[in-house]
Design a protein around this nucleic acid. Structure first.
Lengths: 237, 237
DNA sequence: ATTCGCAAATTTGTTAGACAACTTATAAAC
DNA sequence: GTTTATAAGTTGTCTAACAAATTTGCGAAT
């Protein structure tokens, strides 16, 4: 009996709450223009009937849309769609990233990482340099393909972004790193290349040295080589 | 009477809903580590007592946190904080941007715009080229410092991002453009430089020509000159 | 003493109904 | 015709309850 229950749970593990599904549905309608910008959503009453749920659930769904900056509500008036040009939240649609999406995301990351390395070379403080070295050390001591190793890898890049002194770099690189994290993990564990950690550490070292030497061009170049190498290792072997 | 009411409304224009304020409060506690990753939030019951509101309001606040990827809830268990490395939403904290923040955001945008121009030069289709030209035309026909003019300016950059064929470029540049939109508008209207539109159009033309000629280096360089010029015009005169 | 099973207590998910606060449309009064 | 009350419609909030899932604690069987 318990075993069967477990199987059932495995087959249908995540019964997504109604509010989440409705929010996704409405968000899709907004993004593809089915509900134009400036227009009002149906009233909470109508939506609750339409989706066959209580008004509470509809309100929780709309709460999410508000948080995403997709809509805006005014008491007594209604809920209206905010123009795409004013949206203040950038979001990866949560789901798993397909291979092609990962490549596109890496393509977005590359110029940012290069700029990050260049800026860090010019602006870094001693403390930030120590943080970069610390991430490097932790990766050195980590087991191959371990979770800690990948984390230290991401921390290395994040430490550089922080050393730019520009919080947007730090935040956005952390965001991108998190999105790529799962991908990197599986890629590492599936790779047949046994030297992947050693090579990565060497490339990191060159970046760190160029930053320490306050040589932005060398730092950017070393970062480019590292990203190209990492991309090859992820897709290639 | 009506006049006085208007004044009152101006003085206290936005009584922020309780759910929004609580969501902000909790988000702050999470981001600055007051509630560590992996830990559970207080129960909805306790939070409703703590903030002096109903459970409904607390649930709407938590709904927003879920949408932001800050927390995750499991029925029967509780609401737990998601590690920063896994957050899947990048958000500008809604408020108005200070001058320093704008500069930092422009610094983030620059390498992306340059990469965007380079990629667009290599990958653009005829249709995407037409869209770039269209934005350029609309800006030409627009009134100086008008809302349409700024919109056409942003559309020009967005069209280039779309021509990269990489949806993440398109989405993120649209996001950044929206965030900078208000700033650009005020900067334009406050500027004493009467030729600002003409100069911008000339710089845009050089970018468009380099893209059409499929010359990535020239496109990137023209974009750099444009951004540096725009930044100077925004802060300088 | 340890482990297993099971019921009870917790906790989130959902529903229903009600009232308050605000906006908008309507009708009445001037 | 303009302005002013009135009413209707809509979002914001509260209360009370039950459903569904998880966690906890207790007792029994081994």
């Amino acid at each position: 009996m318990t075993r069967e229950d477990a199987l059932v749970q495995l087959r249908a593990p995540a019964k997504t709450p109604a509010a989440e599904e409705i929010a996704r549905n409405l968000a899709a309608s907004i993004r593809d223009g089915a509900i134009a910008a400036g227009k009002k959503l149906p009233t909470e009453q109508r939506l609750s009937v339409q989706y066959g749920v209580s008004r509470t659930v509809v309100r929780e769904a709309i709460s999410r849309l508000k948080s995403d900056g997709l809509v805006e509500s005014r008491q007594g008036s209604g809920v209206s769609v905010i123009p795409a040009s004013l949206r203040r939240s950038f979001k990866l649609n949560g789901a798993v990233l397909e291979k092609q999406q990962v490549l596109a995301l890496l393509e977005l990351r590359q110029p940012l990482e290069m700029a990050s390395a260049r800026l860090a070379a010019v602006r870094h403080t001693l403390q930030e340099l120590a943080e970069i070295a610390d991430a490097q050390d932790r990766m050195k001591e980590s087991e191959d393909w371990s979770d800690e190793g990948v984390q230290a890898d991401l921390d290395f890049h994040h430490a550089i972004a922080k050393a730019t002194g520009n919080p947007f770099y730090a935040d956005f690189m952390a965001f991108l790193g998190g999105a790529l994290r799962a991908t990197i993990l599986t890629a590492r564990s599936e790779s047949k290349n046994p030297n992947i950690k050693t090579i990565t550490l060497q490339e990191h070292l060159k970046i760190a040295q160029a930053i320490e030497a306050r040589d932005p061009e060398a730092a950017g170049h070393a970062m480019l080589l590292h990203l190209q190498g990492a991309s090859l290792r992820m897709t290639g072997d």
